[in-house]
Amino acid sequence: MEFRIGLAQYAPRLGEVDANLELAAGWLRRGATEGAQLVAFPELALTGYLLSDLVPEVAMRADDPRLATLSREAPGVVVAIGFVEETDAHRFCNSAALLRDGELIGLHRKVYLPTYGMFDEGRFTRAGDRIRTHPVEPLGSIGLSVCEDFWHASLPMLQALDGASLLVNLAAGPARAPGSSAGLAAIAGWHKMQDTYALLGTVAIAFCNRVGNEEGLTFWGGSRLLGADGSTIAQGLLYEEALVVGSIDSDDLRMQRYGLPLLSDERLELVRRELDRIIAERAGLPSPPDQDDT
């Protein structure tokens, strides 16, 4: 069974939530017109990226009626969209909401906030502490993540092991050294990583990366849809706004997992034992009892 996905790689306006809600609604309607059953938007699609102290001004609760209203623009269509979330405890997170018919059906708070080099996210937003998957009929389950989360293999691999048939990553990736080998290497890095997760997780991947400029940054776009065998189904142009559309097929997933049963072969207890040991050693605590000797 086919499942059609649209990736709206657009340029949000920095700090202008109302304008972005309107832009997003336009892309969502277009996605629905093109038959998409899921439309994914970039990271912080409703706020823009380089917010710094604008964070409290643009934040909304995950149950904000504006999100529900946006989702109702396209009946039956699943929406994955990035925004600044304010929790009941006034924790400000870089979050991704999964919505359908006005209902919040999934939420992911960015776990890895890059705070190094050109990035300063940890200064203005707080990290999430859950890695989950969300059931979406008729697809199965979706694993949501936000940009940098994908630079940590544990996160997509956990979501694949947790039953996701599709990983959706919302991104705001700035170009580095455009037109040089170093700049191409950054984009090539994203491609290698996505190809690898699809292959090793036997899972489809939807990556939606924004375009446009903020201050001196240029976001590179190039959104991608990959099949569970790592093949590229659709890929957007660099730097230009576009709705990138393609279909994944649950039958491909089924046969891929029959032919390459990596997920079911995964030795989870062994992984956990070794993780427990590594965690203890890093913290300088006594190692758990060594079971190899028994």
Partner: peptide, 10 residues
């Protein structure tokens, strides 16, 4: 070396 067309675009 810099790929001038990409740099120009940005």
């Amino acid at each position: 070396e810099i790929d001038a067309p990409s740099a120009l675009e940005v």
